[in-house]
Design a protein around this nucleic acid. Structure first.
Length: 205
DNA sequence: GAGAAGATTATCT
DNA sequence: GATAATCTTCTCC
């Protein structure tokens, strides 16, 4: 599948785009080497219409990438220590995105193990922040074009999978916690466990 | 300019 | 299961 075709597919409605990403491959190459992940779990965020989306309240410096053309990477920092990444979807100007929640490392397992010390291979990319660590994704990968030649991070056609994706509520959201906009490959061991939103504990009780 | 909350994870019990 | 770690971003004043 050529890159222009992939970009056209990503420009569709985010609820169509999200399940199509399952079984595709995200690969990042640096001086350290290459790590590639087969995506097994994603979540859809429908920009302006979705109370759970970062873009719901309009464009800000952080979310500006989401308002751009599809096929770019939106990386954000959260909880003071973790990065998570999305693939921007929908046409240019529509702030939809697909959160990449989990995957299976299919290339560069040894490098991924170095980055993710003290864990099993199954857990190398099982969770959005874990997958960022395994791939070495951080602030500098924000806004990268995943479909351009020469990008350090590439979104590639993968093995896909047979059958229908499983669906369920998104993980950890306070807003719209029940919308079944999470998609995963049924039975895949690298899919992350579901956890509902937990309120932050206040500093002084 | 201050305050609150967050698309999480590792660790301890 | 419960909780600490840790800092960016956004919302109000």
């Amino acid at each position: 599948m050529p890159a222009p075709v992939r970009r056209t597919l990503l420009a569709g409605p985010v609820l169509d785009v999200a399940p199509r990403l399952l079984g595709m491959v995200l690969r990042r190459t640096t001086d350290e080497g290459t790590v590639a992940v087969r995506l097994t779990e994603v979540e859809a965020y429908d920009g302006a219409n979705d109370p759970g989306s970062h873009a719901y309240r309009g464009e800000t410096p952080r979310t500006s990438v989401m308002f751009g053309p599809p096929g770019h990477l939106y990386v954000y920092f959260t909880y003071g220590m973790h990065f998570c990444m999305n693939v921007v979807a929908g046409p240019d100007g529509t702030p939809s995105a697909v959160l990449l929640r989990a995957g299976e490392v299919i290339e560069g397992v040894e490098l991924a193990r170095e980055r993710r010390a003290a864990t099993t291979d199954r857990d190398l990319a099982r969770g959005p922040a874990r997958m960022c660590v395994a791939l070495g994704i951080a602030r500098e990968s924000n806004a990268v074009d995943l479909l351009a030649r020469g990008s350090a991070v590439q979104l590639l056609p993968g093995p896909g999978f047979d059958g229908e994706p499983a669906t369920g509520p998104r993980v950890g959201l306070r807003e719209a916690p029940d919308w079944p906009w999470r998609f995963w490959i049924p039975g895949d061991p690298t899919v992350s466990p579901y956890k509902p939103h937990v309120k932050k504990k206040r500093a002084s009780g």
